[in-house]
Design a protein around this nucleic acid. Sequence first.
DNA 1: TCATTAAATTGTT
DNA 2: AACAATTTAATGA
Length: 232
Amino acid sequence: MTSDPSDARTLAADIRWLDVLTGAERDRAWKSLRFARADAGAFVCRQGERIAGWVGVLEGLVRVASTDESGCTTTITGVLAGGWFGEGTVLKREPCRYHAQALCRCRLAILPAEGFDALLASSLRFNRFVMDQLNERLSQFIGAREWERLRRPDLRVACQLTQLHNAVLNPRAGTLVKLRQQELADLAGLSRQCVNRSLAQLQERGLVRVQYGGVQVLDAAALAREVEAGHG
DNA sequence: TCATTAAATTGTT
DNA sequence: AACAATTTAATGA
């Protein structure tokens, strides 16, 4: 992960939570923000180490996963551009229980713990934002347990798509989830060919629409139902 | 702006 | 894993 302050002025608009702050709070938050790049495969945070701060993905895709004693890695969630992670670890000042790895070249924003705490202390609306974020994360972590039980590859793909779709906070259907099939394969723990076939199946059933550089989620509710049925 | 070329991504075996 | 087909991005007139 390389530091790249030159990106600093490029996009304040891409950080959604800045909008919930007052002018003074926003200025202070902006000053404490740091920017970085991560190449494909680079670790944004390693399991057991301390996290640099609250991490936002401005561009690209980061996989949050845990590795158990036997060396088996489980994907917890993928974080697309616009998403933030690590709030739980920053709050508790604990070493990271999971690792975060860039799946492609990424641009990141980092709000160090001091800046994060300052906002929590001063802004009610920021607290609300973080609470919603934590709540979302909680359900994903619970889902990660069931994840391992999913055997059908198309359901694994459907599950990842559902989470990514939710993570970007898209209430409306027909939203494009921008990621390569290779990246989806990395998230789902499948080969690219397998993901390709699974996507074709899902498209056949009218649940998604496959296109170059992304997948349109046409019926998020139906996708979620399929995954749920797969658990049962 | 448009045509050509290179690079990236996808579909298939 | 390899290959062909398709799509995007880059280049230069």
